[in-house]
């Protein structure tokens, strides 16, 4: 049994089956790349793990416990999910960071001193803190979302196309940050080869499993 297990998962949209009897067992520390053509249900798997209102059959277990309505709030405190949609707030970047740090689940885990260190690792200047989030570039927005995920102190990450708008150097940097920590379990959806090169396991939902 892995840290994350997906059993017999079937997803259909509007009566049309897109994913059928999908199984996956992820061990602690594993780095998995999920790929496949658009609309095949890659992002849906992440949304299901987070309990974000998708109809599906099958079972998903975190550390051996089936995810359901009773424990979904604990799951969200243990799993960091960064979606490809970067429209996450309005207002200043510093306000967003302060807000996330103020959540009860994060108060003990996150130190504010780490913010600038992680920002620097992702080539973000501290001046960005005073900027309006909506005025940032796509790449800057992605990196802010990643900073918050990295700050959370969680060790299971679901990353959905988080490097799509970054240049090659930054893509490599982000992949290394997530993949070089042996304690972290990472599932990434991406079309970028930087993830493919370092992944320990590649799941191709189009039918091929490497």
């Amino acid at each position: 049994m892995g840290i994350l297990d997906i059993r017999d998962l079937s997803i259909s949209y509007d009566g049309k089956s897109v994913l059928s009897e999908f199984d996956l067992s992820v061990s602690k520390g594993e780095k998995i790349l999920i790929k496949g053509r658009s609309g095949i249900g890659k992002s849906t798997i992440f949304r299901l793990i987070m309990g974000f209102g998708i109809q599906a059959s099958g079972e998903i277990l975190l550390a051996g416990i089936p995810i359901d309505a009773d424990n979904i709030w604990d799951v969200r405190k243990k799993v960091a999910y960064v979606s490809q949609d970067t429209d996450i707030t309005e207002g200043k970047v510093s306000e967003l960071i302060d807000e996330v740090l103020s959540f009860k689940a994060n108060r003990l885990n996150i130190s504010k001193e780490n913010v600038e260190a992680i920002m620097s690792d992702l080539s973000l200047s501290h001046r960005i803190l005073n900027k309006e989030y909506t005025r940032l570039s796509g790449g800057e927005k992605q990196r802010i979302a990643l900073v918050l995920a990295l700050l959370s102190g969680k060790d299971v990450f679901l990353l959905d196309e988080v490097t799509a708008e970054l240049d090659v150097t930054l893509k490599q940097k982000v992949v290394s940050m997530f993949f070089d920590n042996p304690q972290w379990t990472v599932l990434s959806i991406s079309h970028d080869r930087e993830w493919e090169e370092k992944a320990t396991n590649i799941i191709d939902l189009s039918g091929k499993v490497n």
Binding site: M50, R76, A80, T89, F103, N106
Partner: peptide, 8 residues
Amino acid sequence: FRLSMGAE
């Protein structure tokens, strides 16, 4: 996003 960040 906020739920993903552990918010209640």
